[in-house]
């Protein structure tokens, strides 16, 4: 269930056997009869646990359903959504979710840089590839608990290193409070959800972003870039080099355009994954705090549904989240696809 689908990739393989144009309805039934035992086990499960719940979830988003039955059930129309729009918490959590996307360009650029390094014909690249891939492969609760210890402001190794470097060079730097701090890189104020500059610094959100970049940088995106790099025709880069192009010019004018479809795919998938992320980090590392600064929309949905049992309201939030993801994906297709045709 936790595997991310990739519906948008063009199929690698040839098309399915073409359907024969002329056929009688009797052979239709025969073919259906033949296919049914293969497809039904999966299809039934799919209808019961995926397609059905999607419709059901949409319906309960328009109710006040409360699992603890503290209020009588009724259809509430658009009420959940109007409450949501006026909900100050929702906007903070939305801002948090967007803030977490800041790590995305860093992670993608990092993946590309690692792939470029690994694609140099060097000995031992498989070992390096394995080491880079290790964090993403072992990612999960255990690593989040590890990072919580690393970030501990009093005895964690991260601040120990920062403090000793600062002392050694007499910089007088005050190490960040990391997961305990509401500070952030753009000076976003928790109370007003506005840029006041007072909260400037490194805080819980940045800690989670740094961990995320460390986890993702050598992961599947790097492998996708590696595969794409092997497909860049060597004649092209060699011809450019013969014409006296610098390394950077070769990359900018030859390699980068060739990688565009891969970059596009990675950006689309990163938005989809990023916008619905942050749940595990919040649950394991911060409980969404301090002051709600690490609560993302998915953690908010979890809290509303499974801590407060307001599943009507939580479903409404989940559909708002889906709408955001859908809109962003459509925008990506609209504007991103243009650049992939060169």
């Amino acid at each position: 269930m936790s595997v991310t689908p990739t519906a948008m990739r063009p199929p690698v393989a040839a098309d399915a056997p073409r359907t024969v144009a002329k056929r009688s309805s009797r052979s239709d039934w025969r073919r259906l009869w033949q296919a049914a035992p293969f497809v039904l086990p999966n299809l039934l499960g799919f209808l019961v646990f995926t397609a059905g719940p999607v419709l059901f979830s949409f319906a309960i988003a328009f109710t006040n359903w409360d699992l603890q039955r503290s209020v009588p059930f009724r259809w509430s129309g658009w009420e959940n959504f109007s409450v949501l729009m006026a909900d100050k918490d929702f906007w903070l959590y939305f801002a948090n979710t967007v803030y977490f996307l800041l790590g995305m360009p860093v992670a993608i650029a990092g993946s590309l840089a690692l792939a470029l390094l690994l694609s140099q014909k060097l000995k031992g690249v498989v070992i390096y590839r394995t080491l880079f891939y290790l964090p993403s492969f072992t990612s999960g609760v255990a690593l989040m608990i590890l990072w919580k210890a690393l970030y501990n402001p009093d005895f964690g190794p991260v601040n120990a290193v920062i403090n000793s470097v600062s002392d050694f060079l007499h910089l007088g730097v005050k190490a960040p409070q990391w997961l305990l701090s509401t500070a952030n890189l753009v000076g976003l104020d928790v109370e007003k959800v506005a840029f006041t500059g007072k909260q400037f610094g490194l805080g819980a959100r940045d800690a989670i972003i740094i961990m995320g970049v460390w986890t993702a940088i050598g992961g599947s995106n790097m492998l996708l870039y590696l595969a794409a790099l092997t497909n860049v025709p060597q004649e092209l880069t060699e011809a450019a080099e013969l014409d006296g192009a610098t390394n950077w010019q070769v990359f900018r004018n030859v390699t980068w355009p060739q990688l565009a479809p891969t970059t596009f795919f990675i950006v689309v998938m990163s938005f989809i994954g990023g916008l619905q992320g942050g749940f595990e980090q919040a649950r394991v590392m911060t409980n969404g705090g301090p002051a709600g600064t690490t609560t993302t929309l998915s953690y908010y949905i979890y809290n509303k549904a499974f801590e407060e049992f307001q599943i009507g309201y939580a479903s409404a939030v989940s559909w708002v989240l889906f709408s955001i993801i859908f809109a962003v994906t459509v925008l990506n297709w609209k504007f991103g696809n243009k650049e992939t045709t060169y």
Partner: peptide, 15 residues
């Protein structure tokens, strides 16, 4: 359905 976030189906599946 593969585009739909897991949290959407999580609540109905729980019920």
């Amino acid at each position: 359905t593969m585009m739909i976030p897991g949290v959407v189906t999580m609540i109905p599946n729980y019920t």
